[in-house]
Simulated scan of single mutants.
Amino acid sequence: MKTNELIHRLRVQLKQLEQEVLQHDSQLPKGERKLLQDTERFNDNLFNQAGAQLGPCIDQLSKKIAQLEKLLQGNISATTIALACEGIQDRFTALRRALNTTALGVKSAEQQKASRIAHARKRRQKSHAQSGFNWIAAGVMNNSHQLYEELNKHMNWVHTFEQKIAHLQSKLENCHSADKIALQNEILLVHRRLGKCRQAISYIEDRIQAFERPYKHQNR
């Protein structure tokens, strides 16, 4: 095959593939682009590209064809030419395969994401079970909105306990000596509840920070 004919055929093949790639990239939903944004689609020796969009591969393949054209114009061995042609065909094959497997890549990325979320949820539930705050529903630990509701609930309880302690201490100052022990025991009990409630607030605040930290990193 003559040099000009070989290069012409490769460029025609590239042009056809470019149209498919442009259509592929233009039809990619935003969610799929985000899911695959860090996914390596090729071996490093084929394309330097990551993510769902395949447009950058066309430019790289075009440069390989231009390099082959220069080789054909020089005094280069047939073995070197054959290897260059083989490399170009390998890239065509890999790019076509990538066009046909984007949906599979998305599905795999979705499964991996779901697995990470499930693992994080299981880790939070285990931590919650070992925390000693079992009166807080485990499901609350997996929902940012419910965590804030739980935090607000405990803050209201702190206010209620503080008012009750103030009321009981006022009663203690004016009660008969026979009733003092009972009032002191009640004040002590409310103080314990207040302390436990404050500990729970610190615990919930820590869970909120742990829950929101990954999302803050993602939004940078």
Rank of each mutant, 00 (worst) to 15 (best):
L104E: 14
R121G: 01
K113A: 13
K113N: 11
V140A: 03
V158A: 08
H159V: 09
A120L: 11
Q130F: 01
R124T: 07
R116K: 15
Q112Y: 05
V158G: 04
H145D: 11
H154E: 14
F133R: 10
A120K: 10
I117A: 14
G132H: 06
L147V: 01
G132R: 05
N156V: 10
K113G: 03
M141Q: 08
H159P: 01
W157P: 01
S131P: 10
A138G: 03
F133D: 07
W135A: 07
R123F: 03
K122V: 01
K107N: 14
F133C: 07
S115N: 11
T160H: 14
T160A: 11
A138L: 09
V158H: 11
F133T: 02
H145R: 12
S144A: 08
S108N: 15
K113W: 04
M155S: 09
Y148R: 13
N134H: 06
S127P: 00
E110Y: 09
L147N: 04
S144W: 03
R121D: 13
G105E: 11
A129Y: 01
W135D: 11
H128L: 06
Y148L: 09
S144Y: 03
N134K: 10
R124Q: 03
E149R: 13
G132L: 07
S108M: 12
N152M: 04
L104H: 12
S108K: 15
H154K: 13
I136R: 03
N152I: 00
K122W: 03
S127W: 01
S144R: 10
R121Q: 09
Q112F: 09
R124W: 04
A114N: 14
I117Q: 15
H145I: 05
N134D: 04
R124Y: 07
E150F: 00
V158W: 02
A118P: 10
N143C: 08
Q111L: 14
F133H: 13
I136F: 02
L151G: 07
L151N: 08
T160L: 11
K113M: 14
G132M: 08
A137Q: 08
H154I: 05
N143T: 06
K107I: 01
V140I: 12
R124G: 06
K153P: 01
S108V: 05
Q112H: 15
L147E: 06
